[in-house]
């Protein structure tokens, strides 16, 4: 959280930056038993793809720990599809996959899919996802101040009948690189309301912005929150360590589906 970072920098204000208050230390970690790490997002109309890796001890060499003997199965309505090991990098967006088939997903909101991943070491990971419906973006607005900087405001209507979770992202120019704004939210404080997500005065005239609103499952919301907490716990003395809340059982990772609306605007 930004506030915490602010709090943390404050005492350091007293200090001269040249004081060299950081030093390398060695830490002996206990032996780590690797777990399967799965990342699989289903998206209607897109090919079936997954990434299966494993967790490694923190100070291992930075190589991608692939698991060639892992087998990936997707099941829907009693029909199971196997995704063979076939490492591949999508040149279009730079995304990397370890298991895939070219068959495209046919699914409607409410459909349930299950995932099973197993390898020869006897590790087995399972998960389940229910296809979400999309939530339309009603408006993307912006306003310039006297310094010719604009803020952005994205509005949509929350469904009062359901407990909803959202992921909001904005990209500049293209979605094929990191987002410049990315957060998850629940409707706990905004149930049934017209909700607006804003920004600071971050944009200039002529900027091309792509706004995405994902209607996500609770398990995805929990997973993303725990990933973000775990990352910020490493390096923040005020944070409590956070366990990864996986949507899969038997390992680490996320199996979910992507239902989103996207709008592109050019700030004029």
């Amino acid at each position: 959280m930004r506030l915490k970072n602010l709090l943390y920098t404050l005492p350091l204000l007293f200090l001269l930056a040249s004081c060299d208050m950081e030093q390398d230390v060695s830490v002996n970690l206990p032996p780590h038993e690797s777990q399967l790490v799965v990342e699989c997002y289903l998206e209607p109309g897109e090919p079936l793809r997954a990434v299966v890796l494993e967790s490694v001890s923190y100070f291992n060499d930075p190589q991608l720990p692939v698991v060639p003997d892992a087998e990936v199965y997707l099941t829907h309505n009693g029909k199971t599809v196997k995704l063979p090991f076939s490492p591949f990098q999508d040149k279009h967006n730079g995304k990397y996959y370890t298991h895939r088939i070219s068959e495209r997903l046919k699914a409607a909101p409410g459909d349930v899919f299950t995932l099973e991943v197993k390898d020869r070491k006897g590790r087995r990971v399972t998960g389940s996802t229910t296809i979400q419906d999309i939530v339309p973006i009603e408006a993307v607005e912006w306003k310039f101040n006297e310094k010719e900087k604009a803020y952005l405001l994205t509005s949509f209507q929350d469904d009062p009948e359901a407990e909803n979770y959202y992921r909001y992202m904005t990209h500049q120019d293209s979605v094929n690189h990191g987002s410049e704004r990315d957060f998850v939210a629940s409707d706990a404080l905004t149930n049934g309301k017209r909700v607006s997500y804003g920004s600071g005065y971050d944009y200039e005239k002529g900027d091309t912005l792509i706004v995405s609103l994902y209607h996500i499952e609770k398990q995805y919301y929990d997973f993303l929150g725990s990933v973000s907490d775990a990352k910020s716990a490493n390096g923040n003395p005020f944070a409590q360590p956070s366990r990864i809340v996986s949507s899969v059982e038997g390992g680490i990772g996320i199996f979910t589906n992507l239902a989103y609306t996207r709008k592109m605007v050019i700030l004029e």
């Binding site: 990342e39 494993e54 001890s57 991608l64 720990p65 990397y96």
Partner: peptide
Amino acid sequence: YSLPVARFAFQDVNGKNATVVPVYSDRNSF
């Protein structure tokens, strides 16, 4: 103190640059 014992790579929906996610084990074991 709690420290991560392991890590994994997380690609996320954006692609390209995977990030490193720390995995914590027992509370205050360091």
